[in-house]
Nucleic acid binder design. Structure first.
Length: 759
DNA sequence: TAGGGAATATTTTTT
DNA sequence: ATATTCCCTA
């Protein structure tokens, strides 16, 4: 009620002016197609917007929100809009502001976790926390669980803390508090003690005044169910709720939304069941499939006009995803002209694949294409290296998207631990992290003593340390070091009043010796770490206080990606969701890699369908062209393995494909006495090569040997050839069946012609 | 306490 | 192959 920015007040057209608006729709509506308009205007009651890839989902979401505000249906503080990533939240915010033509501050717009944290800070005492509770990240969690495992005398070797963390995370995803977890839910983890360990972990978190990511939602649920008046407050407040990427919501998030939406029932969820690729981290496709049942009277609006891809790409994607069952079903269509067919190519191995992709990219570049508009989407990170290697030799600029985030770096986490300790003296995890960093000569013995005292007295490590230095318990050296550390902490805490938080941060990093530690480190990455620390200080400047910065770090820190010069993008298929590029390369469409073997092992058919959706996401990222490829051989963790084309290749409708496989290629292998890639396929799913009709490759992937194409190839000087061991090269001289070949990489060699094939 | 050598585990990722 | 993590010894 005290929102500083009350839109309804400033708005020249209050609710009474509604008919006039309807008669002449505002410009932002006119720019939308029919179903998009419906999705924007269906403000009342539950709405599910099924938005296929490239159908203008974000546009609908933002316009809908703007429409709700413009029409005076709600003030900014009465709208809750949730996303999964900060990137999505930021994008939505800036687009809404540009639609409204002014900044909006009081909106509840952010990630599920940020919004839940905001609520939880206000009512923390209801779940036994203080409002300044610490938010632990995955790393802290695992450290804590390690302690709990060792306290319970469980061999961390046999039952890794990380696995327990994942297990607990999944329980939290499903909204299960320790008392709700089945006694046998943990399987044989630590001989069935997992649920008890979960309870101990929660106990410990409360003592530490800390919450992990899952708790943010879970504690909210606890508060909502146990304190009707608190729930009622938020239910009354949020007149309209919007949810992005609903297919990614887990059960806890679903319950959270359902509770909050109960009073006004104006819940609009936007999502695409065909893009659900996060089941492995708790997302429940069931949420979106059950929407109409969960919210009776719900309208379902389908956005099916695709503004991104060509008909061939959409056709290929549609044919693939049609193999999934249990879909809500959408048929994407487009006005676009036909465009290029999806290029499917077989290659010998990963290196070959990278070479071919490199060539294609150079060709695109020659035709005036921008590298920024090209992306290589891989299933697993290890596939990236091959491309990086190749692009380095070609001098082709690239960037890798994803990977370690800024705040996950060790030095940043260390620095933050110092800040946390200054702000919150009893942050034991932070204390432990930095008490001996840089080395102060405080080892196991000291820590044992500290922990013992802290546990016995139920006090924090900081307090325990203060007591311990007044006794003779520690060796004089350790005692002096610990006293010095405590003195520094005290000094820094006192200076919070007279220094700005930025100056204080610099002082802490400096006086603690942390900066000096890296300055003296001769490791090659030390200078980079110092750079990062500088960047951290720089980032601090944008915040009012250390506290607000720390909240930002744990919840809202962006994955800064400098959009610098023109570069090819390399990323995983997961990281590509929500992005689009002119040209997409999809390497590694092989059995065991694209339907990933581990996914299949763990999740069976469900996982297979998720893998298929992943492939579908890959295809639908492309505006103009897709080149996909599979390799006959791939080096996996140092071992060569023969592979089969992915079953997904087979599932693509042939009319949208163009096969480009070098004829005679595999024969060359067979002739050289290698085990053919198809020959190794006995007992594997059979593979029908769509090229069989056009390219004269292998027809059925049965166990028989590929017919040897006996040297129809007479080589002449100047021919490009390929050799299994030496790679590509050019024939310099012919002497009977012996060739002198200058290889691109291996230099000049004499080889027998049956060992090379035409390239 | 530190540093080296062995052991281990390598899908996907956000908060 | 490789990177990280862990354990043990000096």
């Amino acid at each position: 009620m005290t929102d500083p920015f009350d839109l309804a007040h400033h708005e020249p057209e209050p609710v009474a002016a509604e008919p006039a608006i309807a008669a002449a729709p505002p410009p932002y509506l006119a720019a939308l197609n029919e179903p998009q308009q419906q999705a924007v205007e269906a403000t009342e009651g539950p709405v599910l917007v099924l938005a296929g890839a490239g159908t203008g989902k974000t546009r609908v979401l933002t316009t809908r929100l703007a429409h709700i505000l413009f029409s005076g249906r709600a003030r900014p503080g009465e709208v809750l809009a949730v996303t999964f990533t900060n990137k999505a939240a930021n994008e939505m915010k800036s687009r809404i502001e540009s639609l409204l033509g002014r900044p909006v501050e009081s909106l509840w717009l952010g990630t599920f976790h940020a919004m839940a944290a905001r609520i939880l800070r206000r009512h923390a005492e209801l779940v036994g926390l203080e409002s300044n509770f610490t938010i632990l990240d995955t790393d802290d969690q695992v450290r804590l669980l390690k302690q709990i495992l060792s306290a319970a005398d469980i061999d961390e070797k046999q039952w890794p803390a990380r696995n327990l963390a994942i297990m607990i995370g999944r329980w939290k995803d499903r909204g299960l508090r320790p008392d709700k977890v089945d006694a046998d839910a943990g399987g044989d983890f630590a001989l069935g003690q997992a649920p008890a360990l979960y309870a101990a972990y929660q106990q410990r978190l409360t003592t530490l005044n800390a919450a992990d990511f899952g708790d943010l939602l879970l504690h909210c649920l606890t508060i909502f169910t146990r304190h009707a008046e608190v729930l009622a407050e938020y239910q009354g407040r949020f007149r309209y709720l919007l949810v992005d990427e609903y297919q990614d919501a887990n059960v806890a998030q679903y319950l959270w939304l359902r509770l909050l939406a109960q009073q006004h029932r104006n819940l609009c969820c936007v999502g695409d069941d065909d893009q659900s690729i996060y089941g492995w981290r708790g997302a429940e496709v069931g949420n979106i499939l059950r929407f109409e049942r969960d919210f009776p009277g719900a309208q379902v609006i389908r956005l099916e006009q695709n503004y991104r891809s060509t008909p061939h790409i959409l056709g290929a994607a549609a044919g693939l995803i049609a193999h999934n069952s249990g879909r809500l079903g959408k048929t994407l269509w487009t006005d676009a002209t036909e465009g290029e067919k999806v290029v499917v190519r077989s290659v010998w191995d990963g290196e070959d694949e990278a070479r071919v992709v490199g060539e294609e990219i150079e060709a695109l570049q020659r035709d005036g294409g921008s590298l920024d508009e090209i992306a290589i989407l891989v299933r697993a990170a290890f596939q990236m290296r091959e491309f990086e290697d190749r692009f380095l030799t070609l001098g082709l600029p690239y960037r890798v998207i994803g990977g370690l985030r800024f705040y996950e770096r060790r030095e940043i986490r260390d620095a933050n631990a110092y800040f946390r300790l200054v702000v919150q003296a009893h942050d034991d995890l932070a204390f432990e992290r930095v008490v001996n960093l840089p080395k102060r000569g405080l080892g196991d013995a000291t820590m044992q003593a500290l922990h013992g005292l802290a546990r016995a007295r139920e006090i924090s490590l900081d307090q325990a340390a203060r007591e311990l230095v007044t006794t003779d318990e520690l060796r004089p050296q350790a005692r002096r070091a610990l006293a010095g550390f405590l003195e520094s902490l005290q000094r820094w805490r006192q200076r919070r009043g007279d220094l700005s938080h930025v100056e204080l941060a610099e002082l802490v990093l400096d006086e603690s010796g942390y900066t000096a530690m890296w300055q003296h480190d001769k490791a090659p990455d030390a200078p980079g770490r110092l750079e990062n620390l500088k960047e951290l200080i720089h980032a601090l400047e944008e915040f009012e206080s250390l506290e607000s910065f720390l909240e930002h770090v744990s919840l809202v820190m962006e994955n800064e990606q400098a959009s610098d010069s023109d570069k090819v993008n390399i990323m995983t298929l997961h990281a590509a969701k929500g992005l689009e590029f002119d040209s997409i390369f999809l390497p590694g469409w092989e059995e065991e890699l694209l339907p990933h073997q581990r996914a299949l092992d763990e999740g069976g058919t469900t996982a297979l369908e998720e893998e298929r959706r992943l492939a579908h996401v890959g295809l639908t990222r492309a505006r103009q062209r897709v080149h996909l490829s599979f390799a006959a051989n791939r080096r996996v963790y140092g071992h060569w393995r023969a592979g089969l084309p992915s079953r997904f290749v087979e599932e693509l409708p042939g009319e949208h494909l163009e096969m480009r496989s070098e004829t005679g290629f595999y024969a060359g292998r067979a002739a050289a006495g290698e085990e053919s890639f198809f020959a190794s396929s006995a007992g594997r799913p059979s593979f029908h090569d769509p090229a069989a009709t056009s390219g004269g490759l292998i027809v059925e992937g049965r166990a028989e040997r590929v017919p040897v194409r006996q040297a129809t190839a007479d080589f002449a000087a100047g021919d490009r050839v390929f050799h299994q061991k030496f790679g590509y090269g050019r024939v310099m001289q012919v002497d009977g069946n012996r060739l002198e070949v200058t290889f691109d990489k291996a230099g000049t060699k004499k080889v027998v012609d049956s060992f090379v094939s035409p390239a």
